[in-house]
Amino acid sequence: MIEVRDVSKSFGTMAALDRVSFSLNKGEILGFLGPNGAGKSTTMKIVTTFLAADSGSVTVDGIDVLEQPLAVRSRVGYLPENVPLYLDMNVQEYLEFVGRARGLGGARLRQRLDWCVEACGLVTEYHKPIGELSKGYKQRTGLAQALIHDPEILILDEPTSGLDPLQILGIRELIKSLAGAKTIIFSTHILQEVSPVTDRVVIINEGRIIADGRVGDLQREAMGSNRVFLGARQDAAAVSPLLEGLAGVERVEHLAADGGCRFEVRAPFGTELLGDLHRLAREQGWELNELHEAPYSLEDTFIALTKRSVRPGAQQEVV
């Protein structure tokens, strides 16, 4: 549905994107992750035909964005990072304006207005001037604007920025409810936002794609090993060598700061680390107060991937 191939873009002498490539199938949701200034917005502006790439190609639904920008625009609903609202209009006037500008009219426009206002929770604000709305409602109006023509493709630049947790939940639910029917790219710099909505992510940093795949796979790839926390009421000095002697164990770290006998044990993915540790503890008769696998957070993954991308050739070091 969306094909981005070797796209580069620079502003003056500053390279914003460097040979960015990724693709997205129909019905997929893609979380587009990266720190502020990584090139997320620039990529989205290129896909939505607002900007043109210096080199490379972008097709949306098989249509080249430079050859037929109008055809692309009519298929895409776009929420820019800076929510584009006319503050002098009320919600109804604004959505009608965008609907008409997108070629809707008559009963179809009515029907889409009703749907968008309902789906985005704008019923109570329908006749209020946009300038008087709270940030959350402004964001929802922006989202309703992107949905008004029932587009096949949605491109949402930071759709949850500046919202409170409850509102974030609402937007998340809305995106999830559109899953399957629509192809969606949404960007964020907050990692926790991604997992509840999708497991497909593309991570971009300093204009380069540093990871593309499922969240779980990326974690494996980035961290290289599984980790288990073990705590016991024993003498740490006696436990440590036994842990290190375990088959497959790569690293044992004594978490002395936590007090007493607590360890982080790492082994490559695929080894039965948790089971092995459990067996060892039973054989030794340790009195355990903690034994569990600790999946890496997206932050850990992100930091590992970012570091790796900053120092190319340092991959082995990280693994």
Partner: peptide, 14 residues
């Protein structure tokens, strides 16, 4: 200033 420039330039209107 409002950011609506980006909206106008991504509408299916020349």
């Amino acid at each position: 200033r409002l950011g609506t420039f980006e909206l106008l330039m991504t509408l299916p209107i020349r």
